[in-house]
């Protein structure tokens, strides 16, 4: 075990964990931030997407020892009042079915919009293609991102 001082959602959090533990499990099992989901463990599905210094990363494949001073943002820290343009758009389009992948979808989309506030349809497809939605809400996800882009 080893001590790590992590910057998560604007707070300092100290954890004493196995250095090779992926940040996903640090968030979920140790910090009880349960919004970030496990889907595949090999960075193939996107359910575990969080931001590292604002960039979308797959937390299931990122050991805690590799984080250093980087700032982690999870779905719980995306906005103070659940009022991120994407969250508003998700409500408007009633995007989820089962809902399990949606935090990862939103985090991935938030990173896209931060870098490309006016993405084309193709930009959205390229950016979101790593996120699986088993219920196949892809069309609504795309529409919600387009709505959010107009309101950013």
């Amino acid at each position: 075990m080893a001590l790590f001082n992590l910057h998560i959602n604007g707070e300092q959090r100290e954890v004493d964990v196995d250095p090779d533990m992926p940040i996903l499990w640090v968030l979920r099992d140790h910090l009880k931030l349960l919004g970030t989901k496990y889907g595949c463990g090999i960075a193939q599905c996107g359910a575990c997407t969080v931001h590292l210094n604002g960039i979308a990363v797959r937390s299931c494949s990122l050991p805690v020892s590799s984080i250093g001073d980087s700032a982690i943002t999870t779905i719980e820290g995306l906005s103070a009042n659940a009022d991120h343009a994407l969250q508003e758009a998700w409500r408007k389009h009633d995007v989820p079915q089962c809902g399990y992948c949606q935090a990862g979808q939103i985090m991935n989309a938030a990173s896209l919009l931060a870098q490309n506030p006016d993405p084309s349809e193709q930009d959205i497809e390229n950016a979101m293609n790593g996120n699986i939605c088993r219920c196949c809400t892809y069309n609504k996800i795309k529409a919600a991102i387009q709505t959010a882009a107009q309101n950013v």
């Binding site: 349960l34 659940a82 998700w90 935090a103």
Partner: peptide, 8 residues
């Protein structure tokens, strides 16, 4: 469940 889903 929308609020719970989109806020994790």
């Amino acid at each position: 469940d929308m609020e719970n889903i989109i806020t994790g």
